[in-house]
Amino acid sequence: MSTLVLYLALAMAILMLVGAFVVVVTKDLLVAVIASAVVDLVLAILFYILQAPDVAITQASIGAGLTTAIFVVVVRKTKRFEDD
């Protein structure tokens, strides 16, 4: 892992934590779901940087793809906005 890749990993980790923070603060559940998809996708890139391509492809298709689809359907069937 070269230094350049390590800085890329640092940027990805920051992006991931920012996405998780967006999920915490937003009131719009659709925004929360899309932000959590971003977190999962960035996690796949981190897995690839850590030399785990098998896990990366699984995370990208299952974690970021299928889970997001299920979440979007559920948000559509229930309520979009968090009320309090």
Partner: peptide, 8 residues
């Protein structure tokens, strides 16, 4: 042979 498999 390559990354991937049945689940993805």
């Amino acid at each position: 042979l390559t990354p991937g498999g049945g689940f993805p």
